[in-house]
């Protein structure tokens, strides 16, 4: 569904991502983990068209989306839940969701899409007329995911959705990801919580220093030696 090949992104002369290949199949949940500064967020921004790659290609369902503006990438069917949620705190919850409608390919079915998000996240529904800034961190995260979903994307990119959330709230968010996948959405999940991500995802890529280091399967989650190796790179 989503294929990244030979991707390179530079900030000035410093390469943030080098020769990265990864692919996400239709209906898969794929994890992308690694330490801070590994290039995970940069990879997502490159897919979205928010930063310009210096080499490589990004293909969505077979056709290249490299070099398109973010608003075009969204219309092609990719949605991002950005790091730090980036909720518009001065707007109401419902207005935040309606912003997500901007990326829809067709205006038909908007109401149903909103309805589905409200069903998935009842707490968002309850607080729909409040200012988004009044929500708790977990509620804001659910809102951010819901905002990406109302556009009915084929591929959902999430950038550290568990950041700063209490463990029980993380359960809710990760549980929601399974429900979203069940609706047929392909997911690329960038995370810091390595173990949980590896356990959840069909496959998990490990990045460090801008490069792909290894690929882990769900079985590796219990293997602490593999996990440590993934992070600290002893071979």
């Amino acid at each position: 569904m989503l294929e990244v090949s030979g991707l390179e992104v530079r900030y000035g002369t410093v390469p943030a991502v080098r020769d990265l290949d990864l692919s996400v199949g239709r209906g898969e949940i794929v994890g992308l983990i690694g330490p801070n500064g590994a290039g995970k967020s940069t990879t997502l921004h490159a897919i979205m068209g928010a930063v310009r790659p210096s080499a490589g290609d990004i293909r969505l369902a077979g056709s290249s989306i490299r070099g398109r503006a973010p608003e075009q990438v969204v219309r092609a069917g990719v949605a991002l839940v950005p790091e730090g949620r980036r909720i518009f705190t001065e707007l109401t919850v419902e207005e935040n969701l309606r912003l997500g409608l901007a990326g829809r390919r067709s205006k038909d079915g908007s109401a149903e899409a909103l309805e589905r998000v409200y069903e998935l996240f009842p707490v968002v529904h309850e607080s729909r007329s409040r200012h988004a800034g009044l929500l708790s961190g977990g509620q804001q995260q659910q809102l951010a995911i819901g905002r990406a979903l109302v556009g009915e994307p084929d591929v959902l990119l999430l950038d550290e959705p568990s950041l700063g959330l209490a463990p029980t709230v993380v359960d809710t968010v990760f549980g929601a990801l399974l429900a979203i996948r069940a609706q047929g959405v392909t997911i690329l999940l960038v995370e810091q919580r390595a173990q949980r991500t590896v356990a959840l995802a069909d496959r998990t890529y490990v990045m460090s220093n801008g490069e792909l280091r290894m690929t882990l399967g769900p079985g590796d989650a219990g293997d602490s030696r593999r996990m440590v190796e993934a992070y600290f790179g002893s071979s």
Partner: peptide, 20 residues
């Protein structure tokens, strides 16, 4: 709504599909 969002945070607005 798009105008308000774009004046608060143009980068995020574009990531949501708002046409700059």
């Amino acid at each position: 709504l798009h105008m308000r969002a774009a004046s608060i945070d143009p980068a995020t607005a574009r990531l949501l599909g708002v046409r700059a």
